[in-house]
Amino acid sequence: MKSTIKNLIVKNKLSRNKRGQVWAIDLSISLVLFIGVIFLFYNFSISFAPEDPLVNKMIAEGGYASGALVSTGYPYNWSFATINQTYSFGLLDDRGFLDPMKLSNFSTWVGNTTVLNVANYSLSKRKINTKYNYYINFSDENLADIGWNFNGENPKQIVKIQRIILYNDTISDQSSYLVKPVKLNLYLWTNESA
C-alpha cells in the first residue's frame, strides 16, 4: 500500500511537466472521492442515521388506515348510509369479501384525481384514520381507484401499504363467479416536512 502511494507521488512528480495529465488525474481522484463519499453517505443515512419521524408516523398511520379499509367499516352496512352517517370506510362485507357496493359508494363520494370531491375527500381522511393525503388502487384493473394520486404533486414523502383481500369477480352473476385475492395498494403522501 505504501509503495503504491509512493509510486503515485513519483508519477505525479514525473508528470508535473505535463499540464493536461495533471487535470485529468485530479478530476479522477475527485470523482472517486465524490462517488465514494456519496456511497458512504447513502449507506450511513439508510443504516445508521436516526429514522425519519415523518416516515414512521406515516407508516403507522398506513397500518391504521389499511386496517380500517380491510374491515367492514362502521356501521357494518354503511353502504346503505350517507357519508355523514358513516364513521369508518371498511371495504369488506361480513364474509370478508370486497363489497362492491361499499367500494362504489366510497368512490362516488370521494372520487379520484380526475374528479375529486375535495370536501368529501377531506372528510374521508378521518374516516380511514389518517391525516395525510391518500390514494387507493387495486391490482385488479376493473376496480376503481380512489383518492388523490400523488403523481405530479411532487410529494415530500410517500408511504405505500399493500393488503390482500378476497374479491368475488362476478358478484352479479353467481353462475359464473370466481373468488380471487386482489391487492389493495394504499398510498399515504404529504408535501409537508416532518
Binding site: D52, I59, V70, K160, I164, P181
Partner: peptide, 23 residues
C-alpha cells in the same frame, strides 16, 4: 421519496394470506 418499510409490508402480506386461506 422513500417508499415503504419493506419489513413492515412483509407482515401484511403473510398475515392477509393466512386470513384469507383460513376463511
Amino acid at each position: 421519496i422513500s417508499n415503504i418499510d419493506e419489513h413492515y409490508q412483509m407482515s401484511y402480506i403473510q398475515e392477509d394470506a393466512l386470513q384469507i386461506l383460513s376463511t
